[in-house]
Structures are given as C-alpha cells and as structure tokens.
Simulated assay, not measured.
Amino acid sequence: MCDFFSNLLYNFLIAFGVIVGASVFAGMGAIVNNHSPVKTMISVASSIKIWAVAVALGGTFSSFQAIEKGLLKGEIKSVIKQILYIMTALIGANLGYSFIKLIQRWSKIWME
C-alpha cells in the first residue's frame, strides 16, 4: 500500500515538474531569442500537458494495457489503481500549468 501512495506522489510531481521545467527553459530560450518569456512559457505549458501525463505514467500504453487486462479479467482493483495514477498525473500537469499562469499574473503586478 505504501508503494501505491509513493507512485501517486511520483506521478504528481513528475507531471508538475515536466510542465514547470519545460516552461522555465522555454522562457530562457525566449529571452535569448528576444521574445516575450511569459507568453512563451504559457504557450509551452498549455501545449505539453498531455505529454507531461504520458511521461509521468512511463508511457500511456502500459497504463491502458493494465486497464484492459483488469477489465477483461475482472480485476477492478487494478483498473482503479491505473485510473488514480492517470488522474494524479493530470492533476499534477494542470497544477503546473496553473503555477505558470500564476507567474504570468505576478509579472503583470511587477510591471505596474
């Protein structure tokens, strides 16, 4: 049971980190290219959310295979675990996107 909660935490933080890390590095690239870093960060964060979930799950096919096996063999516990892993990764990715949006709001306040 402890492994299950550890994996949930890992999925959340990996998805969150992918969004925030990619956005920050895209913002640095935007500075080098003389573009708006905040707009670039928002654009990147919104476009890679699904990839952050895929990275957190370690590849989407393994999760869907586990769900399929669970449904066909009647192992509901396995299906619920995979759905919770997917939901946790989605929450992490969306929270990462919200964090980048918060940075955008802060930048508007700082520019005033």
Results as ranks from 00 to 15, higher is better:
residue 1 M to D: 13
residue 1 M to S: 13
residue 1 M to K: 13
residue 2 C to T: 05
residue 2 C to K: 03
residue 2 C to D: 05
residue 3 D to M: 12
residue 3 D to I: 09
residue 3 D to E: 10
residue 5 F to S: 03
residue 5 F to H: 06
residue 5 F to P: 05
residue 6 S to W: 08
residue 9 L to S: 11
residue 10 Y to H: 08
residue 11 N to Y: 05
residue 11 N to F: 03
residue 13 L to Q: 03
residue 13 L to R: 03
residue 14 I to D: 07
residue 14 I to L: 11
residue 15 A to C: 06
residue 16 F to A: 02
residue 17 G to C: 00
residue 18 V to S: 08
residue 18 V to N: 06
residue 19 I to Y: 02
residue 19 I to W: 04
residue 20 V to G: 04
residue 21 G to V: 01
residue 22 A to F: 15
residue 23 S to Q: 07
residue 23 S to R: 07
residue 23 S to E: 06
residue 23 S to P: 10
residue 23 S to L: 12
residue 24 V to Y: 14
residue 24 V to Q: 14
residue 24 V to A: 13
residue 25 F to I: 14
residue 26 A to Y: 10
residue 27 G to E: 03
residue 27 G to L: 04
residue 27 G to S: 09
residue 28 M to D: 02
residue 29 G to E: 07
residue 30 A to K: 12
residue 32 V to R: 11
residue 32 V to A: 14
residue 32 V to L: 10
residue 33 N to L: 14
residue 34 N to C: 00
residue 34 N to Q: 06
residue 34 N to M: 04
residue 34 N to E: 02
residue 36 S to M: 04
residue 36 S to D: 11
residue 36 S to F: 00
residue 38 V to W: 00
residue 38 V to L: 12
residue 38 V to H: 01
residue 38 V to R: 08
residue 39 K to Q: 05
residue 39 K to G: 07
residue 41 M to A: 11
residue 45 A to L: 12
residue 45 A to M: 06
residue 46 S to I: 09
residue 46 S to H: 11
residue 46 S to R: 10
residue 49 K to T: 06
residue 49 K to A: 05
residue 49 K to N: 07
residue 49 K to Q: 06
residue 50 I to N: 01
residue 50 I to P: 01
residue 51 W to Q: 11
residue 52 A to T: 08
residue 53 V to C: 01
residue 53 V to I: 06
residue 53 V to H: 00
residue 53 V to G: 04
residue 54 A to F: 07
residue 54 A to I: 10
residue 55 V to P: 01
residue 55 V to S: 12
residue 56 A to W: 08
residue 58 G to K: 08
residue 62 S to D: 09
residue 62 S to C: 02
residue 62 S to K: 11
residue 63 S to R: 03
residue 63 S to P: 13
residue 64 F to N: 08
residue 65 Q to I: 14
residue 65 Q to Y: 15
residue 66 A to F: 03
residue 68 E to L: 09
residue 68 E to S: 02
residue 68 E to I: 07
residue 71 L to E: 02
residue 71 L to A: 04
residue 72 L to E: 13
residue 72 L to S: 13
residue 73 K to H: 14
residue 74 G to E: 05
residue 75 E to N: 11
residue 76 I to N: 09
residue 77 K to F: 08
residue 77 K to M: 10
residue 78 S to M: 15
residue 78 S to I: 15
residue 78 S to F: 15
residue 79 V to Q: 01
residue 79 V to H: 01
residue 79 V to Y: 11
residue 80 I to D: 04
residue 81 K to C: 15
residue 84 L to I: 07
residue 85 Y to G: 01
residue 85 Y to T: 00
residue 88 T to F: 02
residue 89 A to M: 02
residue 89 A to D: 00
residue 89 A to N: 01
residue 89 A to V: 01
residue 91 I to Q: 13
residue 91 I to E: 14
residue 92 G to P: 09
residue 93 A to H: 10
residue 93 A to Q: 13
residue 95 L to V: 14
residue 96 G to C: 10
residue 96 G to P: 04
residue 97 Y to F: 11
residue 98 S to T: 07
residue 98 S to G: 07
residue 99 F to D: 11
residue 100 I to F: 00
residue 100 I to S: 02
residue 101 K to E: 12
residue 102 L to H: 15
residue 102 L to Y: 15
residue 103 I to R: 04
residue 104 Q to R: 05
residue 106 W to C: 14
residue 106 W to L: 12
residue 106 W to F: 15
residue 106 W to M: 12
residue 108 K to D: 04
residue 108 K to T: 06
residue 108 K to A: 06
residue 109 I to S: 07
residue 109 I to A: 06
residue 109 I to L: 13
residue 110 W to N: 10
residue 110 W to I: 13
residue 112 E to T: 04
